[in-house]
Amino acid sequence: MIAESQNKVGHRNVIETDLFKQASLPDDPKPGEMRLRRMKDEGSGAYRSVQRGVMVRAEGVFPGIRNPLSREARQEALEYLASASVLVRWVGASSVEAVS
């Protein structure tokens, strides 16, 4: 998930939560930056909400689920995997916005 996200936005030096915070900012990218976009910005509040959703999901997945100290029962592990899978799907379906 991290490598795919890094490749998609061209940032190999940023990882985990910071990567998603930078890549999901609703603001326009500056020169040399890229953003992941789950939907086109049509000036609605939904756009900002969707972009924030990616950041919030990443903030939960990396420190809470990927934490090496959290070893859970099989059912809980499957639920965590499903939660992380949503983030992977969002990254895969996102378009990349860059300044040309």
Rank of each mutant, 00 (worst) to 15 (best):
A3D: 14
S5I: 10
Q6C: 01
Q6R: 07
V9P: 04
V9R: 00
V9K: 01
R12M: 10
R12W: 10
N13P: 03
V14K: 05
V14D: 01
V14M: 02
T17R: 08
T17G: 01
D18A: 13
K21L: 09
K21G: 00
K21F: 05
K21P: 01
K21R: 15
K21H: 06
Q22C: 01
P26H: 06
P26V: 02
P26G: 01
D28S: 04
G32S: 02
R35K: 14
R35Y: 13
R37G: 02
R38W: 08
R38F: 01
R38H: 05
M39P: 06
K40W: 11
K40Y: 11
D41Q: 07
E42I: 14
S44C: 09
S44T: 13
G45D: 07
A46M: 14
S49C: 09
S49R: 14
R52Q: 15
V54P: 00
M55R: 10
V56K: 07
R57S: 12
A58F: 08
A58H: 01
E59Y: 04
V61G: 03
P63M: 02
G64I: 05
R66E: 13
P68F: 06
S70H: 06
S70E: 14
E72N: 12
E72K: 08
A73P: 10
R74N: 11
Q75F: 08
E76L: 15
E76Q: 11
E76I: 10
A77F: 08
A77E: 13
A77C: 10
A77W: 05
E79V: 03
Y80M: 13
L81H: 10
A84V: 03
V86N: 06
V88G: 00
W90D: 12
W90I: 15
V91S: 03
V91L: 06
V91M: 07
G92S: 12
G92Q: 11
S94F: 00
S94P: 01
S95R: 04
S95D: 15
V96E: 02
A98R: 03
